[in-house]
Amino acid sequence: MPGSLPTVDFEGFKDGTSKDALEIGQKLFEACRDVGFAYLVNTGIPQNQIDGMFDWSMKLFALPLETKLKARHPPEGWKHRGYSGVGREQVSQHVFDPDELQAIRTGKFPDFKESFDLGNEDSEILSNVWLPEEDFPDFRNHAIDFYNSCREFQLSTLLPALALGLGLPIDFFHDYHSANANQLRLLHYPGAPTSVFESGEKGRIGAHTDFGTATLLFQDDDCGGLEVESPSQPGTFMAVPPVAGTVIFNIGDFLMRWSNDTLKSTLHRVRAPPRKDEDSGDGIVKDRFSMAYFMGADYDKTIDCLPGCFSPLRPKRYEPINAGNYLNKRLNATY
């Protein structure tokens, strides 16, 4: 596998009771502890469904702006549903002061992307915002099916493996993720002349960590751009190229806090590819597409330090916190 990320293969995990399952859980734990990122293989999410969702995403973002705005994201940052146009969201890293946030949103290196967010179709807290069916037929059904496939892997395999790796009961995380408080984000980074990225007029996504429990990231096959901070060289970022048949996994700040910093929420960013040596003119950086499935704990749950992650020699670093309050604070700071 290229790059420096570990690879976790879920082949043989099954119901989580075998020796193989325990070893897989241990490999996942080690990846979360040492790097915070991993390539996942044999997740059970069908590749043809992943490819099909990329096709739908490309069609969605190719629609006229006036059509996309029929599913406009609500004005509240925490209501992460629907369409957000280029520049509407600006990633910030633990910045909550209104004046500082305004400076980020209007300063150099603006995030040059558009997105569409959806979640649990049956949620009583956050309603999905869809385009009218006549404007984009069948998109809603395919998006929900893909979301549900990610959710199935999360519940049947990923969270149980994480629990096993931490030495917890296999169903430990289920009670904290039963309300299906997750988010699927479709992302489009429009193409632009190389010079606007080199000058800083436009950016893609600056260095940040994710907010929630963990993330699954699907990259398009031929563009790349994801970079992850090196675990051995802070401040140095390494490329994480797309690899056929894999899904990128990373943990979020919420899980790092929950684990008393035993697990690592790692800075990552998306950059436009650099100019090739042979390029003498102002070439075009092509469009990039990705899809992120963000896993969040139930909004009404309050979490304290995970068992086994604290001791008299390693006291708790954080007070208990409500999941909903924490995530909404982080979301409001970006929108």
Rank of each mutant, 00 (worst) to 15 (best):
Y147T: 00
F13D: 02
F109S: 03
P75E: 14
V243H: 05
L306S: 07
D15Q: 09
G16H: 02
F218A: 02
C32D: 02
T106Q: 14
N141W: 08
N180D: 14
P274A: 10
E100T: 07
E152M: 06
E76I: 04
L306F: 08
G119N: 10
K14I: 05
Q49N: 03
K316R: 14
G200T: 04
D55V: 05
D122A: 13
I50N: 08
I50Y: 12
G245S: 14
R81H: 02
P160N: 07
C309E: 07
G77E: 08
G167M: 13
I125S: 10
M291G: 00
L5E: 11
D287T: 11
T262P: 15
G12A: 13
E133A: 14
A323D: 00
W258R: 03
K264D: 02
N48Q: 09
S57V: 12
E114W: 09
D287Y: 06
A161R: 05
E89P: 03
P6I: 01
H174M: 02
Y335N: 12
L313I: 14
N42I: 06
D117K: 01
F136R: 01
G12D: 06
L166D: 08
Q233P: 05
D261Y: 02
C32T: 08
K27D: 12
Q26K: 07
F237S: 05
Y318L: 10
Q93M: 08
K19H: 09
I205E: 15
E152Y: 11
V8T: 09
I284M: 15
R271Q: 03
P234Q: 10
D287G: 06
V243N: 08
K276M: 15
E114R: 04
A192Q: 08
N260Q: 07
R330T: 04
A181V: 07
N332R: 03
G235V: 03
L65M: 05
P6K: 06
R330G: 02
K329R: 14
A143F: 00
F173Q: 08
